[in-house]
Design a protein around this nucleic acid. Structure first.
Length: 396
RNA sequence: GGGGAGAUACCUAAGUGGCCAACAGGGAUGGACUGUAAAUCCAUUGGCUCAGCCUUCAGAGGUUCGAAUCCUCUUCUCCCCA
């Protein structure tokens, strides 16, 4: 498989493949690396496996000698890419943005080599911070309302009578200006970024630059088959610990495995076909171990797999249970549970108890009035809530 | 600027004076079954010192024995006209 084919395997749309082919050929001949732009907005801290798909593609370019240009959207973060949610994002402070950016780079660094000369990291506040209102007007004049309203997300919201704020409409222009500023040859982005990527092309043309090739990557769906999102809890965070990550992948629906193998591992198509032909559980174990190995280590992945089997198939109690201490006293169970973090409120704990989901030292307790004596100097005892929350409790 | 419609719990969405902590669906959580898959079934889904009490229906006031429901003002959104 040549590079172009490999790129195509990991992408859903390339504008245009012909242009990319020519660029690659030219670059190979001249030895001049392509500048491959990828932008991220440090609006939150959790980068998940879905975000990793374009980053893995970026790594592919890097492996072939091209230069990743990572844009930290510390300017655009001020507004956040419009998503159609109508909740107002609280404005991020400079510190938030910096902290998020640092976390992002750390997590991205597990996939792409960020070292000097191998990668270029830019912040778009570099140019946005220097613009005054008249510059903004000039930026705004580079497109039209009709053009911007073509964007799916805006179109949809207009149709549903939801607000579309003016500043949101500036977002694609800002992202486009990034491309002009860094003279991108190629820009990568998720499926939903196509419009923004196009805007970069258009704006580069206006600035007399060669328009970038736009490549979008398929959306990696969450473990439940819906869009991967932290708010659905169906995501696999890149900063999750090995055990958690392994467990999350194991909860993936069978239908999702093929995509996950292709987009989140390095197996080739034949290997994937072979794996999928076997027992789904075995295939998923392979998938989970491979993903955990890539981000943590092979040993961590093996350990996670062993612990997982023990805990969920043999229903054993895991080894590393957090120990919480409370004042020695007599507690009603719901209150004690809330105090040790098993539940947000006593009402929630009460529900868990009534639902039969609470065990003390292995025995189900379904009496909400159950009293627990925590006595100084005694061995800790175990409270389990649901399948996977364990806490040891002891008097402090 | 003028006129009209609307804001209900995580989401969608009923409710137009007492039967409302608020129908229904989704989601989520717990349980059964299992491969922490899917499908299915059951329960729960504001808080608390839990047979009771307290705080919720955009916000602030008001009417009433009693308001998510009626009135006034405010904020926000959408539509039509200018």
């Amino acid at each position: 498989m040549n590079l172009l084919q490999e790129i195509q395997r990991l992408s859903s749309e390339i504008i245009s493949a012909d242009q990319l082919e020519k660029m690659l050929a030219k670059s190979a001949a001249s030895g001049e690396a392509l500048r491959v732009k990828f932008g991220i907005d440090p609006t939150f801290t959790d980068v998940h496996l879905g975000h990793a798909v374009p980053i893995r593609l970026l790594r592919l370019f890097q492996k072939h000698g091209h230069l990743p240009v990572l844009i930290i959207g510390d300017g655009t973060a001020r507004l956040g890419d419009p998503t159609g949610r109508n909740d107002q994002r609280p404005p991020l402070t400079v510190e938030d943005v910096e902290r998020n950016a640092a976390t992002y780079l750390e997590q991205i660094g597990t996939i792409v080599d960020l070292s000097e000369g191998k990668c270029e990291v830019r912040r778009n506040s570099e140019w946005f911070g220097a613009m005054d209102f008249f510059d903004c007007l000039k930026l705004a004049s580079s497109s039209t309302a009709a053009r911007l309203l073509e964007r799916d997300d805006f179109k949809k919201r207009m149709k549903e009578n939801l607000p579309v704020h003016l500043h949101e409409m500036m977002y694609p222009l800002m992202q486009g200006l990034d491309s002009v500023q860094v003279r991108a040859d190629v820009e990568l982005g998720g499926n939903d970024q196509l419009f923004n990527l196009h805007m970069g092309r258009q704006m580069q043309e206006r600035a007399d630059q060669r328009p970038q090739v736009c490549i979008t990557t398929p959306l990696l769906l969450g473990t439940d088959g819906r869009k991967m999102s932290k708010s659905y809890g169906n995501h696999v965070g890149l900063n999750a610990d090995a055990a958690d990550m392994y467990g999350k992948v194991m909860s993936l629906s069978d239908d999702g495995m093929e995509d996950w193998f292709r987009l989140a591992t390095d197996f080739n198509d034949e290997e994937i076909a072979t794996l999928l032909a076997g027992h789904p559980r075995e295939a998923k174990d392979k998938l989970a171990q491979t993903i955990v190995s890539g981000i943590h280590s092979e040993e961590a992945a093996k350990a996670a797999a062993v612990a997982f089997v023990a805990q969920f198939r043999k229903k054993e109690v895991p080894d590393d249970i957090p120990l919480k201490t409370v004042d020695a006293s007599s507690y009603s169970l719901p209150v004690l549970m809330k105090n040790v973090g098993l539940g947000q409120s006593t009402s929630e704990a009460r529900r868990l108890i009534q639902g039969g989901g609470v065990r003390i030292n292995g025995d189900v307790v379904n009496d909400v009035k159950h009293k627990v004596e925590v006595i100084a100097g005694e061995e800790p005892f175990l409270i389990q809530a649901g399948k996977r929350r364990f806490v040891n409790v002891q008097a402090n």
